[in-house]
Design a protein around this nucleic acid. Structure first.
Lengths: 343, 343
DNA sequence: TTGTAGGCGTTATCAT
DNA sequence: ATGATAACGCCTACAA
């Protein structure tokens, strides 16, 4: 064991000395530069391998102003949606030999600002982020433009122009789902939506309204409640719906977590879940299969694919950047079509 | 918007030029070095603030051979245990102004080797890892010693000496749990364990055996089955237990995931869960509260705390290293006592 | 084909 | 109290 406090990895300088050539020759040999003698190249590469030479990424990053690190900020990884998304992100990153600086915002704007800033200071080559629920201003993202660091937002995307975007069109998905229930003969379809501040809430609401309107029916806003995603808030919303004279036949929850809390409470108050009232949801997370009443119908939002696309979009942008495509000042948007899943 | 392809952040050199002082003076002023005129310090700090100067971590890392990045490798974040652990890791890192390079091994040794190696190449200051289930040799970890990069293993720790360790003593926890059932009057207690290759399986098995022996009873190995954690394997193990002449009264599963698969199958074959047979488990994950039959009793393994301790241990080690404590060649071990949780 | 030299941003060691 | 200079590892004009 050659452990030694003063051990330091071999450098091109050492190789150069040992072989009585210059550092530039070594550099060229190791980078397979065209203008180099075949013999010298081999000698150098062999010694490099023998010494276990590895280029010092630190030094290269420093010189080339590239780190080969992408910052990834997610609201919270304990939600299955994001823990699946990060797999897509990671797999795509691996493919391109990038690594991932990771942090969670915990749906807190201040935390988001802090971690995003830390990543900028670490000089990440790009930032992939799914915004916190609280995020209502985007200065921390816009500052990346000044530093010429590309930003790809996914799933929870902002309304601003100067970032790239990947997301799932839930407006369409909602129309599909509501229409499906109408076709099955249900009439009173309720929605436990998220906070109105979220773009995702508006998509659902608009889809809901349009699906109802398409049916030549009048939208009854008593059937639409909002939850801030806390269990208490979900229960409060559900209570209001259950208190209606004309009770809903179907309750669609904003996502599977809201769904699970809703079902749990419904059971407590002796509602016959999926008989008296049908419960449906967005997301289609694997854990729901372990629960008592998985949603009867749900909308798959392809978290893995979203993450993967986000990273691939990032790679494409970085590639164009390195080619000096300053001309291309446009921002990409990719829409993923959600799928209706019937259980 | 001053977007500009050739924008580059201010450097101490620029500040020096603007103020007609030398770079060393600027450096000293910004680092609050003692030997500097109060006046110049203020002038420099003011201009720095005005220009939005930020030290270039890249350059500092390069020079000081420190990145302020800790590599974190977990088997899979979709398991609640690890998604909680990473919170502890992240919070502790934030406290110390470190960031986190993250990757998953997906319980695959080759992947683990690959990501660990990528992190070493990125020159992380330290590595925190919870080993993959497959990991049975530790060369990839031992190589870190040569590079003088500290390694802290947590939860799934190896048998080797030259890494720091944080883990939960499940031997003791198992004894507690089994004894608790004996005291409640149950006699035939079964265990669906993990693969024998896992240290965690042996801890459970030894705890189980000793708890039975302590009771002056003979260990009946028909009551111990193994699952490789796939649903099929768990079901196979459960089938064997259910096929016994003398059926078990209690079934303890390796973890909540095995537990959930077991309960799901038990329900399918019309077992009256927690009446005919009591189901217990390790881990006490939050999602179980949404399932039909949460474990009656489970062992809390404090993932957050383990992650937090792992990072704190890392910080302590790095601190000692920077103080030049080469003398201290010892490795830390911290044992967390699990808690019995009764529902 | 190969070597020389300069520079990336910062800190540290000398001088002054 | 301040300045000049070298050094970290690598790359890349430019020179030979």
């Amino acid at each position: 064991m050659e452990k030694n406090a003063s051990y330091s990895p071999p450098t091109i300088k050492q190789i150069a000395r040992q072989l009585n050539v210059s550092v530039s020759t070594v550099s060229r040999a190791l980078n397979n530069h065209p203008r180099i003698g075949a013999g010298t190249r081999e000698r150098i590469q062999e010694l490099a391998k023998q010494l276990g030479y590895e280029p010092n990424i630190q030094a290269i990053s420093f010189k080339q102003k590239k780190t080969f690190i992408i910052g990834v900020v997610l609201p919270t990884i304990k939600e299955d949606f994001f823990s699946q998304a990060i797999n897509g992100i990671e797999d795509a990153a691996t493919q391109h030999h990038y690594t991932m600086l990771f942090a969670q915002s915990h749906d807190n704007l201040e935390t988001e600002k802090r971690v995003v800033d830390a990543m900028r200071k670490q000089r990440v080559d790009g930032l992939i982020i799914s915004l916190s629920k609280e995020t209502n201003n985007y200065k921390h993202l816009e500052s990346f433009e000044k530093f010429d660091i590309p930003v790809v937002c996914f799933d929870r995307v902002p309304s601003i122009k100067n970032v790239h975007k990947v997301y799932c069109n839930l407006y369409k998905g909602t129309i599909e789902m509501v229409t499906w229930f109408f076709n099955k003969g249900y009439q009173r379809i309720a929605l436990i939506n998220g906070p109105a501040t979220l773009a995702a809430s508006n998509e659902r609401l608009n889809g809901y309204k349009d699906a109802v309107s398409n049916r030549k029916l009048k939208v009854d806003m008593q059937l639409v409640e909002a939850s801030d995603f806390s269990k208490e808030s979900t229960i409060a919303a559900l209570k209001k719906l259950l208190a209606l004279k004309n009770k809903p036949e179907v309750i669609i929850s904003f996502n599977d977590y809201v769904h699970m809390d809703a079902v749990q409470f419904a059971k407590q108050v002796k509602i016959k879940v999926n008989k008296q009232i049908i419960f449906a949801s967005y997301a289609n997370l694997p854990i729901t299969s372990y629960t008592i009443y998985p949603p009867v119908i749900s909308i798959e939002q392809y978290p893995y694919r979203q993450g993967e696309k986000a990273m691939e979009m990032m790679m494409k942008v970085l590639q164009q950047k390195s080619l000096g495509n300053t001309s291309n000042d446009s921002y990409y948007t990719e829409e993923i079509v959600p799928a209706l899943v019937i259980h």
